[in-house]
């Protein structure tokens, strides 16, 4: 069976959940091989975690010549691993960086590329959701080694032991790939809440919060949910851009999405329309968000949310 390469998405050796989802998908297509680009001291721990989720092989590439530069060196690494392994497919997490790596890799390998897949079948055909979630598209790469970027939450991460054989891989990085340098990096503060793109429940707030996210965060914490925001709330400086949901923010597809004080503009819908269950709290009964909901409350979020939070806490205890 052919190898299927999975580029490992990690922060300082801590593998992020979407990578495990990719390993589950890789298993449908062939034999999962993880490509870990990182610090040598973190490789062993990461390889053990990757093996737990099905990686048969883990290529370890030292990041000394990669980490200070933007995307181009990572594309070179993948090209070289692909040349050596002749994989059946290459899977990358569909983040901004992941898609850029995939784009460059496609040109290098002369291979077709599909981005933002929400499902991949055993025969390599993919499902995407386009036009603000209004259409579903089935597509397939027809040339070269299929390169597919997959959105978080598109498969469930399944523990299933793989051999996890570590193979040190020496990649050569060209000077051209080091032309865009990262000169400063400010890690984002961890909120202690689940990652937005990975969360099973997302509770979001918009302009209707008036800038006070206390009620939104209270409900989120009672439900163990991630917090999200509309662009209006981000533009007002109430939440960081990393929490923006929509066309120019994140796309989320959780089991449950609760929009509070959000009108439901098309650009916002683009980021949440494929959520399984949608709930909204808005004081305007004409708000377009109500066209999407499974359940809606016409009311003031500043009274509805705290009362609901209290009721949930009561039921839990």
């Amino acid at each position: 069976m052919s190898e299927v390469l999975v580029l490992v998405d990690h922060v300082d050796g801590a593998v992020r959940k979407p990578t495990y989802e990719l390993l589950a998908i890789a298993k449908r297509l062939g034999e999962p091989s993880a490509v870990f680009i990182g610090g040598a001291d973190k490789a062993e721990g990461a390889a053990a975690d990757l093996a737990k989720f099905g990686a048969e092989k883990v290529y370890v590439v030292d990041h000394a010549e990669v980490k200070g530069y933007l995307v181009a060196p990572k594309a070179e690494v993948l090209q070289q691993v692909a040349d050596a392994a002749s994989p059946a497919a290459i899977l990358i997490v569909s983040s901004a960086e992941g898609k850029e790596i995939a784009g460059r890799l496609a040109i290098k390998l002369g291979s077709g590329l599909i981005t933002d897949a929400v499902d991949v079948d055993a025969d390599g055909s993919t499902t995407q959701s386009v036009f603000a979630g209004n259409y579903t598209v089935k597509a397939k790469v027809t040339k070269g080694t299929p390169i597919i970027t997959v959105k978080p939450n598109s498969a469930s991460a399944e523990e299933s032991a793989g051999a996890g054989t570590v193979e040190q891989f020496a990649a050569t990085i060209s000077d051209a790939a080091k032309a865009a340098r990262i000169v400063a990096s400010n890690p984002r503060q961890a909120s202690g809440r689940p990652e937005l793109a990975e969360a099973a429940i997302v509770v979001s707030g918009g302009r209707g919060t008036g800038g006070d996210f206390g009620a939104v965060e209270g409900l989120a914490d009672a439900l163990g949910a991630a917090v999200g925001a509309s662009r209006a709330a981000v533009d007002s400086g109430w939440q960081p851009h990393a929490l923006q949901i929509g066309q120019t923010g994140k796309t989320v597809s959780p089991q449950l999405y609760i929009a509070n004080g959000i009108s439901g503009a098309i650009q916002h819908r683009a980021g949440m329309q494929t959520s399984k269950t949608i709930v909204a709290v808005n004081k305007d009964e004409e708000a377009p968000i109500f066209e999407l909901v499974d359940f809606g409350v016409v009311g003031d979020l500043h009274s509805v949310l705290p009362a609901a939070t209290q009721e949930i806490e009561k039921r839990k205890s």
Binding site: S95, A180, V183, S185, N186, R188
Partner: peptide, 9 residues
């Protein structure tokens, strides 16, 4: 996703 970076070229 995890950091704000300054990239120069």
């Amino acid at each position: 996703d995890t950091a704000t970076e300054v990239v120069i070229g």
